[in-house]
């Protein structure tokens, strides 16, 4: 059970970490000062969550720290979904990726607040306020871009067309997720999906955008099968810990 719980914490933490990393790449390069501040703020929230999950995971594992978990695993041991490792192609892709993740993340945290695991419940209770703001921010921008100019509409639709087929992975239950759900520790992905579908339908419709009728993609980030991007993300993320091992910073 302990191993499964550890693995589950990695899934939760890695999603926040890799998305937070992608957002941090934009720091200082946003389309306006206000959006720059907002995206950095979301990244900061996500890394705060990562620390909570990994400190708990380190405690469970023993002989580990939040940093050894964050920076010293090999590529195949990261458990994030493929959606969050998608690059910052343009602002529409950044917003699309954020919105689809937030629409999943908020109902996930709502369930985790009721987790039988007190620590997870506490982390979720703290994170949910942040997640509510993230979803409000990303939804408002999906609407602005979707129902803005012709160019922004086209870009936003293109981003959704690219990102939406990656969403199915969020709801494809792994053994770990199944185990955690049965113990009342983890979330029921089917329930999250109902809320997710409803939210996405409403916001995209307000944004005059369409849910693309394209087949979902076979992705398995949750079991450690990543895109070719992941190695480069890790090369940056892990650089200091790899180049200067066993030091205090």
């Amino acid at each position: 059970m302990k191993d499964k719980l550890y693995e589950y914490l990695l899934m939760l933490g890695d999603n926040s970490m890799i998305l937070g990393h992608r957002l941090s790449e934009l720091c200082g390069h946003g389309p306006s000062l206000e959006t720059d501040i907002a995206l950095t703020n979301i990244s900061l929230d996500l890394f705060g969550q990562v620390r909570s999950y990994f400190q708990y995971a380190a405690e469970l594992k023993g002989e580990a720290t939040e940093d050894s978990i964050a920076f010293l695993r090999f590529d195949r041991d990261y458990r994030n979904v493929i959606l969050v490792e998608q690059p910052n192609t343009d602002f529409a892709h950044v917003i699309g990726r954020q919105f689809l993740f937030d629409a999943f993340h908020l109902p996930l945290l709502e369930q985790l607040m009721k987790s039988n695991d007190e620590m997870i419940a506490a982390i979720a209770a703290k994170s949910i306020k942040e997640s509510r703001y993230h979803l409000r921010f990303s939804s408002s921008w999906v609407k602005r871009l979707g129902d803005g100019t012709e160019e922004s509409h086209n870009r936003m639709q293109e981003a959704i067309n690219h990102l939406y087929p990656l969403v199915s992975e969020l709801f494809r239950e792994t053994e770990t997720e199944k185990g955690m759900k049965e113990l009342g520790i983890g979330a029921d992905l089917e329930l999250i999906k109902e809320s997710f579908d409803e939210k996405v339908k409403t916001i995209l419709s307000e944004a005059t955008l369409e849910i693309p009728a394209v087949p979902s993609r076979q992705t398995n980030g949750k079991t450690g099968i990543h895109t070719e991007q992941m190695g480069f993300i890790l090369a940056e993320l892990q650089y200091m810990q790899r180049a200067y091992p066993n030091m205090q910073w």
Partner: peptide, 28 residues
């Protein structure tokens, strides 16, 4: 910002992100 993606620890990551964000706020 050049070092935000490469901080050595999570604690330093959060510290640096917050600092750069403060600077954007000062600019505002």
């Amino acid at each position: 910002g050049n070092w935000v993606t490469r901080t050595p620890t999570l604690r330093r990551k959060v510290g640096l992100l917050a600092k750069v964000q403060d600077e954007a706020g000062h600019g505002l």
